[in-house]
């Protein structure tokens, strides 16, 4: 089972997908339109690039800092949460298990390259 299939099969996950770091491709599964998934991938890619830069800056000042290289990030709203690890994104409602989603993402993407290529 692919990672994306595994994610969208989880209770409360309504979309999951991946984007290219170059920003020229994306794919997804779930209950959102193609256009909304495209927008989601643009937003997730933008935040990921910022987070990587910030983690690298932290590591530049504090070499033993345990945050770099950045693996991913989570943003939580009142009803929905967005999780990203490497170049995979997952949209879930807050009734879903964030820990379950993060566990799958972190396990399956543990060996993902930190190069944004």
């Amino acid at each position: 089972m692919s990672l994306i299939d595994e994610l969208v099969a989880l209770h409360g996950v309504f979309a999951a997908g991946e984007y290219s770091y170059r920003g020229d491709r994306f794919s997804y599964k779930g209950h959102v339109s193609e256009e909304h998934a495209r927008m989601a991938s643009i937003m997730c890619r933008a935040t990921s690039m910022g987070v990587h830069m910030q983690a690298d800056i932290m590591a530049g000042s504090y070499p033993e800092c345990g945050v770099a290289p950045a693996g991913g990030w989570v943003v939580r709203g009142p009803q929905f949460t967005v999780c990203v690890m490497a170049n995979v994104f997952c949209f879930l409602d807050n009734q879903a298990s964030l820990n379950a989603v993060m566990s799958i993402l972190r396990t399956r993407l543990a060996d993902a390259s930190s190069d944004l290529i």
Binding site: R45, M49, I57
Partner: peptide
């Protein structure tokens, strides 16, 4: 080297945020 690296990453971030503003 550090300044160039920062400028490169910041440029990409500004591009990404400008793309979102346009979107």
């Amino acid at each position: 080297v550090r300044l160039a690296h920062f400028a490169h990453e910041y440029k990409r971030m500004v591009q990404a945020n400008a793309d979102q503003l346009s979107m």
